[in-house]
Design a binder for these strands. Structure first.
Length: 410
DNA sequence: AGCCTTTGACCAGCG
DNA sequence: TCGCTGGTCAAAGGC
């Protein structure tokens, strides 16, 4: 409340009565680089600048926050990764929800995965005394949002600022508060899955950077195939962070819980194996059109295939590769193909298309296929990624009860 | 139409 | 008992 009122006062303050230069000293102290500009270059902006000290997380390294969790058992593991994490420091944040199990290997993996985004720092902790999971995220100076001309959607969405960090689950915001002692407003989210009581609290700075996320409870359901909204509007930031998250979460869900760390590690490692190069290559330009290999057991099989080794020439004209709409390949929780639709469809089995539909959040129609083999009930649907028509997402339902037909010679 | 966010009000725990 | 605080509710409106 206090903060709110303070903000209100500041914002409402007429330009004519803006503070004298002496009042800005603190800013110049905190942001020495700002002093390069003329002191009168943007006085109005300075006057209404939110109170949030957005650069603070950078200086007070994530490690500080981690260390504040020293009582947590995983802290040790986190520390082991500190060096890795510390090395990357220059780009927007990152988010690793539900990384329940933390080992050195995991930390290494996550750190490696994070390189896609040039850098990210995070600390993961799990409170041993309760079911509460804590994922602290530290944001770094954010990438200035780029406004796209025609997009009517709030810029917030474009940059994933005003929605919960996409972690594969659907969340509904049910409250927001300015919490005392925190410089950021805290948002409260509930999992939208029926009967799922998982909640999370997210603290973001005014420019959308996530300062902290606290999860409460465990999901009692599998991750929805696609988020209901903004399915693929993730930025590189999101994409980068989501893939590992998805893997972590999905793996946890399918394998049980933290006791399956080894399996998780395997998955992660396989991911690293296929994608590290591309990740690294993508760093300078933030082009994260990279895919992933992932296999899950169960009645539904979800596989992701590496897709960004496709020659650039193959990429379609009009494919948005700007920093603003980084391809969500990493975010896609299903099989991802790059290339013509037929490629996505032909996976060795024979399929009969039985439907097509435009689904929410994706301008491209989704095609539905059934396996043509009698008594085989496997189905799949194929769709293009909303923000990258070159990426096909294929979701399988069921298991084939027969061998893969011999491929025709081409 | 359905789902989502926003936001002021309300509630419960605590000192 | 009161005030503070964090968490939740729910109406309104947006997408």
């Amino acid at each position: 409340m206090e903060l709110k009122e303070t903000e209100r006062i500041v914002v409402a303050k007429p330009v004519a009565s803006r503070p004298t230069l002496s009042n800005f000293k603190s800013f110049s102290e905190f942001f020495p680089s700002d002093t390069n500009g003329s002191p009168t270059s943007e006085p109005l902006i300075t006057v209404i600048r939110p109170k949030t000290v957005r650069f603070k997380p950078v200086t007070s390294s994530p490690l500080d926050r981690v260390s504040s969790q020293a009582e947590l058992p995983v802290t040790q593991a986190c520390h082991s990764s500190d060096k890795i994490l510390k090395s990357n420091h220059t780009s927007p944040l990152l988010y690793r929800p539900l990384a329940k199990t933390v080992s050195k290997a995991t930390i290494r993996m996550l750190a490696t995965l994070g390189t896609c985004n040039a850098s990210n720092e995070y600390a993961v902790a799990q409170n041993a005394g309760s079911q509460q999971e804590i994922v602290k995220e530290i944001n770094l100076p954010n990438v200035t949002p780029v406004k796209s001309g025609n997009d009517k959607r709030p810029q917030l969405y474009k940059n994933n600022i005003d929605r919960p960090s996409y972690d594969g689950y659907n969340w509904r915001k049910y409250g927001q508060k300015q919490v005392k002692g925190s410089e950021y407003p805290r948002s409260y989210y509930k999992c939208t899955h029926p009967n799922c009581l998982v909640k999370k609290k997210v603290e973001r700075s005014l420019d959308g950077e996530i300062a902290e996320i606290v999860y409460k409870g465990d999901h009692n359901h599998v991750k929805p195939r696609l988020p209901r909204r903004h399915a693929f509007d993730g930025t590189c930031q999101d994409s980068n962070q989501q893939l590992p998250n998805n893997q972590i979460n999905d793996t946890n869900e399918h394998l049980g819980s933290s006791s399956h760390l080894n399996d998780l590690v395997k998955v992660q490692e396989s991911y690293n194996h296929v994608s590290n190069e591309a990740f690294n290559a993508s760093i300078p330009k933030f082009d994260c059109s990279c895919g992933v290999a992932r296999v899950q057991d169960g009645s539904s099989k979800v596989i992701m295939e590496r897709v960004d080794d496709i020659p650039a020439i193959k990429r379609r004209k009009g494919l948005n590769q700007s920093n603003e709409t980084f391809v969500g390949g990493l975010q896609v929780p299903q099989v991802v193909h790059d290339g013509p639709d037929s490629e996505a469809v032909s996976d060795g089995f024979r399929w009969r298309k039985y439907g097509q539909k435009v689904v929410r959040g994706n301008p491209y129609p989704r095609s539905y296929y059934k396996c043509t083999v009698v008594k085989c009930n496997v189905r799949k649907h194929v769709e293009r990624a909303a923000d990258n028509p070159n990426i096909f997402i294929t979701t399988y339902e069921g298991k084939h009860n027969h061998e893969m037909p011999i491929k025709k010679a081409t």
